[in-house]
Design a protein around this nucleic acid. Structure first.
Lengths: 354, 354
DNA sequence: CTGAAAGCGCTTACAG
DNA sequence: CTGAAAGCGCTTACAG
């Protein structure tokens, strides 16, 4: 029961390991007879490739790393699932890392902590200051997920946050809302961009400045959304028309706070989120949200990563000392991936006030 | 910028690679002077271990694989997060695989598809028939997650499903409910066990058989919960007292269906789930659920896996032909991990009917 | 189309 | 406490 190696298969089939390797890796020029013979030995002995050894020798492991802040956050879990599925189609195995929003771990990844294990990395950075990533100039295949505006140093894929936020707010404006609270500004680039989209829409609709309000939070989680809205609702006075939450988790928290305070959605306050996580179809009431095309994100990210992986192989051959600028090859600015507005009950006003 | 190897560090420091290796791996018996010298070279050259090479040579990669059916299902995402966190504390990297409920992939894993990449695997099987796993007698470290009753072939960790279900139903009975629908039986072992817990509680409370009802579903998802309850509510006639959903996803779907039909929770129908996923605190109304201790599950699973990994190392030394029965070493029946009942509004009746 | 052989970057008995 | 050397299981020019 000891491990079966290529050598064992070769002996069993009466060929050289070279030939076994050829058969296993699907090399074309092997005579049908030899192939059949080797295949039989392969099956009979139950050979299983040692990917580690192959990786060591060939420089390619067939793994890529996906680093997300919190795997337990629905958006990231769903993104990871999409990436795993897309990778599976390409015969790539995904190593999922959870950086826990800890920039230490993110930094470690940027510095190449996974380089020799993974052929490349997909990084959905949260805490890492954009400048830091840019400064490191990683010398391995890297694609950023989400809109982080890290200069144009790396290929990145994600929706256009500004446009997405604008779309969400425009939808609320179309429903007749005029006093719209933006929920979720924080230090992140994403937060800035979504704030900007909000402001663009409010400005274009000529909404009075007094009716603009951006509520900050630390993290885009249900609890923070809940807490922020509870605070907002305390005391007396008129209510805003609508809440535009920067993601669905915040929106879920907001809905719960509204519900707990007896505020009706959408009659009193309309709510819109971003991400269209699965949960959003089951909230009370179902949540209107911006749905990024996760499959498109995954597909494109993988395509970009593979481009880099391939070009690295090529350039290393050309310049064995590894001076090649890996990232630069494909750093051309990317089109943002598509998204769509999913209108559900949380923002559907029977009779627009307008 | 070419890759810095141990040999480079050794030359730079004027020692042998053996010494560099000793320093890097924290071997004790290295003179302080040598250590300092080597450390300086390490830093100066920016050495980074090639884990692949180490793994090939030493037989340990420092990776374990975690295979779950659907990473996008909240329970599994939260479990994965717990495992990653616990593994991080032990210096282990987790390779997350999503089997997509496809028994093909699960089977592949059981057959050792990840063996040489991961030191061991944590498998949360869903579709795989218990007998199959048992029949394969995997020759690598394996711990099953969740209660699958695969004989006692493998160490496994999870809550006691029967007891958990019984606890949930007993809680409903205590609230005065007498006509409790169990939602979620399917072909899975988990489903059978939760059904059994339901029956035990109903039986012990001497509830009339006419008031027992087990509603089947295919998957434990929100949509299936929604669809099943919609169907249940169609037409006229009295409503049941309560719904015991076999997991929170089903409960979320049930809550939505109830809400859409204008049925009040908990006044008309109380609802209880299992898993206590984060989402459950934000449903309408907040959902009572059974909370398994995910950290305990992760910790224990990792401990059991490490035991096996270690004992394999040991036994292989003793019996180089690999005849050692890896799993058997620690296959002693495990205590189920703890859980607790989290009572929220969905089952809290001000005035128990009893 | 196939063989014999070098080598990927480590670890680890074996000596000293 | 440290060196010189073998070898983990592959891939891949280099020959033939």
């Amino acid at each position: 029961m000891a491990r079966v190696r290529m050598r064992d298969v070769a002996e069993h089939a009466g060929v050289s390991v070279r030939t076994v390797s050829n058969v296993v890796s699907g090399y074309e020029h092997v005579s049908p007879d030899t192939r059949a013979k080797v295949q039989r030995s392969l099956d009979e002995l139950g050979y299983r490739m040692d990917y580690l050894a192959r990786g060591l020798r060939s420089g390619r492991t067939g793994f890529i790393a996906l680093a997300v802040p919190f795997l337990a956050e629905p958006y990231f879990a769903e993104l990871a699932q999409a990436v795993i599925r897309a990778a599976g189609r390409r015969g790539i195995t995904v190593l999922v890392e959870s950086t826990a929003g800890d920039s230490g771990v993110e930094r470690q990844i940027i510095e190449g902590g996974l380089t020799n294990v993974a052929d490349g990395v997909l990084l959905s950075a949260l805490t890492l200051p954009a400048g830091d990533v840019a400064a490191k100039k990683p010398d391995f295949p890297l694609v950023m997920l989400g809109e982080h505006s890290v200069g144009d140093q790396f290929p990145r894929v994600g929706i256009d946050n500004v446009a997405a936020a604008r779309t969400a707010v425009e939808h609320l404006l179309e429903q007749g809302c005029r006093w719209i609270v933006a929920l979720g500004r924080n230090g992140s680039e994403n937060g800035r961009q979504r704030t900007e989209g909000y402001e663009q829409a409010m400005s274009a609709a000529r909404v009075r400045r007094v009716n603009w309000l951006v509520v900050p939070v630390e993290d885009w989680t249900r609890d923070q959304g809940y807490a922020a809205v509870r605070e907002l609702l305390e005391g007396d006075g008129p209510l805003p028309d609508a809440i535009f939450a920067f993601n669905d988790a915040l929106a879920v928290g907001a809905l719960r706070a509204l519900d707990a305070s007896g505020v009706r959605v959408p009659e009193d306050v309309a709510v819109v989120g971003i991400d269209a996580i699965q949960e959003s179809a089951y909230t009370h009431p179902p949540l209107t949200s911006i749905a990024p095309d996760l499959d498109a994100i995954a597909e494109r990210a993988l395509a970009l990563l593979e481009e880099q992986i391939q070009s690295r192989g090529a350039s290393e051959e050309a310049a064995p000392d590894g001076e090649a600028q890996v990232g630069a090859v494909v750093a051309a600015p990317q089109e943002p991936t598509p998204y769509r507005l999913v209108v559900r009950e949380s923002s559907r006003r029977e009779a627009p006030r307008e």
